[in-house]
Design a protein around this nucleic acid. Structure first.
Lengths: 113, 113
DNA sequence: TAGACATTTAAAGGAATATTGAAATGTTGG
DNA sequence: CCAACATTTCAATATTCCTTTAAATGTCTA
């Protein structure tokens, strides 16, 4: 359940090329995640720069960090991403079918009668 | 079909309180839309300020303008919003069910055989 | 067509964000 | 413990973004 200011922070995080690419790589990488260095390498940005953007994404709650030996491994925060999609469709766009897409039931599990 | 830089522009538009609220009001208002002045009033911001943010949203393709008499009426660009939701779910998040929500079919209209 | 109205444009200042390079922190293996 | 490694933090700069005010544009009505 995302509030307005959290959503703004999340959108702000996505509004930047490096961060958007980081997120894509992390979603693809799954629960295992990727180290800061590996992300820096793939995206061809400096260690200090990737660190800056990783902090930004982490503060926004879109990714999380864990240490593994010398490396720090980042991974996507799927819950937060789901909440953001939900915010965009429901809170922001009033659940309008022109936005959510017809034939796409809003994220409700099928109700047991 | 949104490209990366268009998506970044769209997210940038949503990463600001006034603009996010404008968009909400416009989605709620439907195809009829709302005038710049009416938006400025409801959101308690100056005419020139609302105009600034409306331009921003329009440049990002999220809203559109039409003139009606003295007023300029803005309305939500539902297609662009749908594309953005799609981008977030598919391009950005690899269509991962942890993000799109299980039980929510991807936005395909039921195919006429 | 003059005047009021609705909005935009332009210019300027201040605030937030991004990039860079250098120094600091924490971690591991010898 | 020391040296190399992985990453972060800091400080400085550059850039972009937001707000405000004033002036300009376009539209309608009397």
């Amino acid at each position: 359940m995302l509030g307005e200011s959290q959503a703004i922070a999340a959108f702000g995080s996505l509004a930047q090329e490096t961060r958007l690419r980081v997120l894509r790589l992390l979603v693809q990488a799954g629960a295992e995640g990727l180290s800061a260095g590996s992300l820096a390498e793939r995206l061809e940005v400096s260690p200090s720069n990737i660190s800056f953007h990783l902090s930004h994404l982490e503060r926004a709650g879109l990714i999380q960090a864990r240490r593994q030996a010398r490396s720090i491994i980042y991974s996507a925060a799927y819950d937060a991403l789901r909440d953001l999609v939900r915010f965009l469709m429901e809170d922001c766009c009033a659940g309008d079918p022109r936005v959510t897409g017809r034939g796409c039931a809003p994220a409700e599990p099928p109700k047991p009668a």
